[in-house]
Nucleic acid binder design. Structure first.
Lengths: 204, 204
DNA sequence: GTCTATACCAAGATAGAC
DNA sequence: GTCTATCTTGGTATAGAC
């Protein structure tokens, strides 16, 4: 029962699990559910492929966990922005909070991939539910009107799309692209471009 | 050289090709690029799987064709709406035109899947280009300001997301869901729900 | 122009050792 | 708790007949 019984660097189950989910989020964000390999995820997390499957049972279950965690983080971030009234208008606080989520690599993109997979019986169901949850938050907790909430969501979906398109990578070159970016992220461009930088390297 | 040399129902190459692209659009719309099988497409088009590959070389090339055709149809539809001035405000004409594209099963969703695959060297490149093309249309031909164009695109991306989520399928049940749909498609709900109906059956 | 048969590979999952 | 080896399936692509 001495501690030296354990020579190889192991982690507590929970930590490894978190690590794998985080890596999975990043990869799923790039290639989507079907486009992502459990092996890619394993390599990103520095563990073996069978172990990834072992931990979550199936790739699908893992994706659902990623999706669920993304929603938790998203709503958590919104709630914090809501509580943290710094005098700025609500829309802006929430918007910045949203953009701040770019720090979590793949988080918003994994969500987006899920949103567009509504035909899938299990992923689609969870995705619908999650989207509604966000809408409900905006209406009930944030006190937006349905129109305001719709506009806010629309902006969010446009952001996600631009991130998915890796538009932030081609910034300064094309003047039209640059104008589009500015139109899409009013007053937040610098933040977005900076955070978007993290998205650069991803050799398959 | 008699016509009876050809007993089995063949089509002109061009027509078959069109048919396959259309079927592919529908399936890609449901499951995305990676999630779609060339065999699914083949069955949807009523031809053999190898023949699909034969016609387009690779699955990737086929997807790019689908993407390109979708953009052509989208811009065509917009140009028609622009030219067809019936007194309604431009935003509304374009919006209705956009929603009308739901008639082409999978068209908007295939676009959406492409948009979120920006990390892919070939698909991503084409997708970025296409998105910019649309933005440029709104700014130049439709004469929108950058803000107007941004808002319009945002609405479009939200629509796509709701379609992808199959939100229109759960209409009347949940009151919140219904409110969300109305907020998302102002004055167009009936059209959307009606056209969205076509999306129901899709057994994998 | 279109099919059948099939080669070939990649990916998810399982078994079992350490 | 984590790995190596491996089974199994399914999917893209090719060959070649009709």
């Amino acid at each position: 029962m001495t501690e030296t019984d354990v020579p190889i660097p192991r982690m507590k189950a929970h930590d490894r699990r978190e690590l794998v989910i985080e890596s999975a989020t990043a990869v799923f964000g790039d290639y989507g559910y079907y486009g992502t390999t459990t092996d890619q995820i394993a390599r990103a997390a520095g563990v073996s492929q069978p172990y990834v499957v072992r931990m979550f049972g199936t790739k699908e279950k893992l994706f659902v966990e990623v999706l669920e965690r993304a929603l938790v983080l998203l709503l958590g971030s919104f709630r914090r922005a809501l509580a943290n009234d710094d005098g700025q208008p609500l829309q802006r606080r929430l918007g910045l909070s949203y953009v701040g989520l770019l720090e979590h690599r793949g988080l918003l993109l994994s969500l987006m991939h899920a949103f567009v997979l509504g035909s899938d019986p299990v992923i689609g169901e969870r995705a619908r539910q999650g989207f509604l949850q966000v809408y409900e938050f905006l209406r009930t907790e944030a006190g937006m009107t349905s129109t305001e909430a719709g506009l806010f969501l629309a902006g969010g979906m446009l952001s996600n799309t631009m991130i998915g398109l890796r538009m932030t990578d081609m910034d300064s070159s094309d003047p039209i692209a640059h104008e589009l970016l500015e139109a899409c992220f009013p007053e937040k461009l610098e933040v977005v471009v900076e955070l978007g930088d993290t998205y650069r390297p991803d050799p398959k």
